[in-house]
């Protein structure tokens, strides 16, 4: 599995399609995490589900980095960014490559 991360609107998807044209995509992971949290799932359950989904074939997982701001007012938003951050750290450990995209420019960091 290859992980592609970066802020919103940085050209992550376009970068991934250029670099890994034959991969399968799990895009907008951060929104998937939010959806599952709203459904009442815990962080480790969500991580297990993602790991199960991206097993086997060559997968590219794409996610926004959402932790680089002021602590949000709402508890759900704080939980979301924390769970999302922890899941991304675990996925980065699993990943064979991690790329970070800023202004459309990708940097391989693992």
């Amino acid at each position: 599995m290859i992980l592609v991360i970066g802020g919103s609107y940085q050209g992550k998807t376009e970068y991934a399609r250029q670099e890994f044209p034959n991969a399968k995509y799990f895009n907008q992971l951060h929104l998937f995490v939010k959806k599952r949290l709203v459904e009442g799932k815990k962080g480790n359950e969500i991580l297990d589900e993602i790991r199960e989904a991206v097993r086997g074939d060559e997968w590219v997982v794409i996610s926004d980095e959402i932790g680089n701001g002021i602590v949000p007012m709402e508890e759900d938003d704080r939980t979301w960014r924390e769970v999302c951050g922890r899941i991304m750290i675990e996925l980065a450990k699993d990943a064979t490559e991690v790329h970070r995209v800023v202004c459309g420019i990708g940097q391989r960091i693992k």
Binding site: E65, G67, N68, G69, V71, R81, E82, V83, C84, G85, R86, I89
Partner: peptide, 8 residues
């Protein structure tokens, strides 16, 4: 330096 829950 890093964001929230970045593993810093």
């Amino acid at each position: 330096y890093g964001g929230s829950s970045s593993g810093k």
